[in-house]
Nucleic acid binder design. Sequence first.
DNA 1: AACATTATTTCCAAATTGGACTATATCTGC
DNA 2: GCAGATATAGTCCAATTTGGAAATAATGTT
Lengths: 221, 221
Amino acid sequence: MDTQTAVDLEKPERKQQQRSIVTQQKLLDAAIEAFSENGFKGTSTRDIADRAGVHHPLITYHFKNKDQLWRTATDRIFREFNISLVKAMAEIPDVEPKAKAEAFVRTYLRYSRSQPALHRIILQEATYPSERLDWLVQNHLRPLFDEVHKSLINLQEMGVAVQGSPALLFNMIRVCAGGLVALKLELQHTSDIDLDSDAQISELADMIIRVFFPGDQPQPG
Amino acid sequence: MDTQTAVDLEKPERKQQQRSIVTQQKLLDAAIEAFSENGFKGTSTRDIADRAGVHHPLITYHFKNKDQLWRTATDRIFREFNISLVKAMAEIPDVEPKAKAEAFVRTYLRYSRSQPALHRIILQEATYPSERLDWLVQNHLRPLFDEVHKSLINLQEMGVAVQGSPALLFNMIRVCAGGLVALKLELQHTSDIDLDSDAQISELADMIIRVFFPGDQPQPG
DNA sequence: AACATTATTTCCAAATTGGACTATATCTGC
DNA sequence: GCAGATATAGTCCAATTTGGAAATAATGTT
């Protein structure tokens, strides 16, 4: 439903120039950073332009307005994440559901680290009702939930995942991954945890898996 | 030329008037709401004054400036939480460590629901380094961590808590409680979870306990 | 009544806001 | 190459918002 250019022209008579693409990418990166730091309301288009090292009127030129910029930027994060996820899942055979769950956790965690905005922007928008939250839910969060939810029920039936509400379970896993990464600055100071390190990310992944998917492991007693 | 704030000075020659206390409370409530929605930078003192239904110069009068207002408001949240926590823990005998862990989870969850800002403000401040984050860590987060960390190690040794890094464990529990409540608006839409309901809060508490404290408590006698 | 405390009201100087506008540079398609 | 479209630069503005100061008025305390 969208093109790479800001405006949907019926008949693009010329192809988009390379420098234009670069500018848009810089603006999108800057927007993601700014929005996840200060929220939608707390971010000015000039701030974004400054971070991108670009003249601020270019935002109007490329993305029409602040709202469209937010949507395009957010869309990119979730798209990229979905690509990573699909790719990782495809490598695991369907007959190994626990391995699939593990892949999900590790992918979510790895992507969250490289792009903490994945979780932060959700949090920013979840503080009060807005059209943006509705958009986020409908286009990205709900579809993801629906899919994982099914898998989780399956895993519970197989005795791999812990019992209890699969909806709660999904969200607990999600915040243990993304939510912890979003707090990484704090964790460095309070808990001597450095989620920038591969080792600690891996340790966290192991722990999430061990806690939420304890099945197929040596049961004590 | 010292401005009198809520903090008690050496010798107040007259006692604080009731209307002053009310105004301060209204401002603190409004500040907590605004800061947790839009972060420190994204919140204006005028916005806070409007929410409180109070003239904005009163902020300067009562709290000197925006920064002091933030500190006072944040301090109040954590103090209140600590009071709840201490009170709840005092009711559980020391010989029942698992019950203590349960009480901690339930208290954290209940307080987070009545005051989601507890988690949201941390998240707002954890997105980039600031003096406020340092202050938060030193005055509230670190002390809480240190205390719970000890208890968790103990619980692990008794086989009540799951194995693994106690620091990670603490933070996983924390985000499963506070982090999920902070997302409650989203969860209503994506997952049909209503964390305003007692039943679902209780279900979440049970699940957290079941997942992170699966071991049985040795029964005395 | 006297005086401290609290609230109201008006004001300011600085910064920020989104956006318009023109001019210039650069690329594309021919 | 050229013409026309695309993209950026640079400048400007009017409106609003910002945190805060100040003078004045109202209210409570002793």
